[in-house]
Design a protein around this nucleic acid. Structure first.
Lengths: 181, 181
DNA sequence: CATGGATCGTAGGATATCCAACAATTCGGA
DNA sequence: TCCGAATTGTTGGATATCCTACGATCCATG
């Protein structure tokens, strides 16, 4: 049976129409606050995990973009800072990216003068990654953005829930990671 | 100052070496359980959100792959099932994907006979999406996988924490989404 | 000290995703 | 009624990511 399709909340978001046309396009509210029913999805951890992560990613990108660096660069710089001399493979394992994904990212960071890739003396296959002074500066700037970002997340999660929330995420990571290999 | 690099836990994961070489490659534990320090990342919601989401995605993909469908297909089918006749744009808004991303996905689902795209009578620009009987069957199979998956997530999060965890995710989605546009 | 298996970083191919631009269509005002 | 603005789905270009394959290198075992 075909939908009556009159005053049908399912057809198109049909925004209030008034927009001061700046930037890309207004995105419709996610998670089915449109009048679109999500059914099973409504009570599913996995789906909400995805939406929350993507929203967080975009929000962080908006902040960090002001200094010409994207979210992926942040984790990269932090880990190099914390572990000077580590290899690309080890870096990838730590930040959760394939080593082949890091190749162009590190090339770019090197060309921008933020990191150094020295051939490791003890193993000439690998590079020893370090931050340059400029890299440390960039990291400091990014760190400020990251702090502000995580504060925003904290406010949404609620300070009293933060620890439990983070623990739950850690359990998911540890538990699923052991499955995923 | 160059790293001494002897007994240096930062160089390479250097797995226990014994592997029964099957499948792709063993992935090193994420989240810096390698001996690699994560520094700031260690206490950051955003970073853990990303790792948890990706792990969940991969885990679900492994389940759903057994019936030839990927995670993205699940949300698509659920929402069409719940909202027969909706448009591609409305679907995209609900599942959090750009309409142009859905074009090839819907084309594929249509070719596999799982959905129908009828031109909407009232608006000939848009399609009215519905599930075919085969699509309903596929959805049923996927739903079983999804249920098992979310049970696995529930176990890791802890039944007593589930509601609070989900609420926190919802607050993040709602709060960040309003920023991200 | 040879040699085969493991590991390093890179290159290439495949996918998924976004945004911008487009033709077709709809809709709201003059 | 007519026209400009908005919307629909598609296309094309740009990224980010993964996996596989590869040459170079390392290392454990003979």
């Amino acid at each position: 049976m075909a939908q009556p399709s009159r005053a049908n909340p399912l057809r198109a978001p049909s925004q209030p129409k008034a927009r001061s046309g700046r930037g890309p396009a207004l995105r419709a509210p996610l998670g089915g606050q449109n009048g679109v029913r999500l059914g099973l999805l409504n009570d599913t951890l996995g789906f909400h995990l995805r939406l929350a992560q993507e929203a967080s990613f975009v929000a962080f990108a908006r902040r960090s973009g002001t200094c010409g660096l994207k979210p992926g660069h942040f984790a990269t710089l932090v880990v190099i800072h914390e572990n000077p001399g580590l290899s690309q493979t080890a870096l990838g394992a730590a930040v959760g990216r394939d080593k082949s994904t890091l190749t162009p990212r590190l090339t770019e960071l090197e060309q921008r003068g933020l990191i150094r890739r020295d051939r490791a003396a003890t193993d000439r296959r690998s590079y020893a990654l370090t931050l340059t002074p400029a890299g440390e500066e960039a990291l400091a700037a990014l760190t400020a953005h990251a702090a502000a970002h995580d504060e925003a997340l904290d406010r949404l999660v609620g300070a009293e829930n933060r620890a439990a929330f983070l623990d739950a995420l850690r359990r998911l990571i540890a538990g699923l990671d052991s499955d995923n290999r």
